[in-house]
Design a protein around this nucleic acid. Structure first.
Length: 293
DNA sequence: CCACTAACCTGTAGGC
DNA sequence: TGCCTACAGGTTAGTG
């Protein structure tokens, strides 16, 4: 479930173990995920130090000792976990258990305080991908991204300028990573619900005279920020020990107010509505037809 | 440039 | 239990 809050939770879980760790060995169990791994991926990572686990939108960015960037996108089902073992015989481990069959990348890390551990990337659907760059500026994936929704660069004025005259539904506009980077299907539904805006509203309808944001667009910005911060907090509280956590690390089951609640009562106090589901640009949208306008 | 669809790939839930 | 369909948190390529 990796939208911005989940990726941030993964980053925070990884950081205590990978920041300052040396990459001792890298094993790829296949040549591609969504895309092929870059040439000499394992060789170029091996021997490097991870200085810091960072994040931009839904991308994990591991800053390397030589100034380079190891980029990882989790797609829909990607996750990292640690195991206290060497990866010298990964095949033997994979065969020992069926749930290892989607372990695609195995990395031995040596951390000055935490010692040696295996960092495993697993991804059933393989919509995730990894790449290596000499610098952030070099990544085409990062080049076109809009502002971070939790930064000051994301605000109602900027959205108004972008949305003026725009015919796309607000749902689609917020999913567009060039507009704002990090929102996904869940948190767009949640933010629109909280701001009482129907997902079918045209983006341009939230803009007033002289490209000024309408009050509901101001509310939307506030609710986007709030729902992301709450989700990050929930992830942080769920996250105990990333290294020793059983199962997948960093994902958490957050309580959603509207997402995936089709047919259930609206949770807005005093509202008598029932949650509806529609499909917009091929993806489910959830909303309350009574308190969203 | 814009908007929409199909595609990528595997797992799971629900109906019969 | 099996078989079938629909659907899943993301992004990109292709079409009109």
């Amino acid at each position: 479930m990796p939208e911005l809050p989940e990726v941030e939770t993964v980053r925070r879980g990884l950081a205590p173990y990978v920041d300052g760790a040396r990459i001792e060995a890298v094993t790829l169990n296949r040549k591609d995920l969504r895309f092929a791994f870059p040439k000499d991926f394992a060789k170029r990572l091996t021997g490097q130090t991870i200085e810091r686990a960072g994040r931009r939108a839904k991308y994990l960015l591991f800053h390397l000792g030589d100034g380079g960037i190891w980029l990882s996108h989790l797609g829909m089902t990607g996750s990292f976990r640690f195991e206290d073992r060497l990866i010298t015989e990964p095949t033997r481990y994979r065969e020992a258990s069926a749930d290892r069959k989607h372990d695609h990348v195995e990395i031995t890390l040596v951390h000055p305080e935490q010692g040696r551990m295996a960092l495993i990337y697993t991804d059933a659907r393989r919509f995730g991908f990894m790449d290596l760059y000499a610098s952030e500026a070099e990544s085409p994936y990062l080049a076109g991204l809009g502002p971070e929704p939790l930064s000051n660069d994301f605000n109602a004025e900027m959205l108004a300028a972008r949305f003026a005259g725009k015919k796309a539904p607000i749902k689609a506009a917020l999913l567009d990573q060039r507009v704002v980077a990090g929102l996904g299907n869940i948190y767009v539904s949640e933010a629109l619900y909280r701001a009482h805006i129907l997902p079918t509203r045209l983006a341009g309808s939230l803009v007033g005279k002289r490209d000024r944001p309408k009050p509901e667009l101001e509310a939307l910005v506030i609710e986007v920020r709030k729902v992301l911060l709450e989700a990050i907090d929930a992830g942080g509280s769920t996250l105990r020990d990333f290294r020793n956590a059983d199962g997948n690390s960093g994902y958490f089951q957050h309580r959603f107010m509207i997402y995936d609640r089709e047919g259930e009562p609206c949770l807005t106090p005093g509202c008598t509505g029932t949650v509806q589901r529609i499909v917009q640009s091929g993806r489910s949208s959830f909303f309350c037809p009574v308190c969203q306008h």
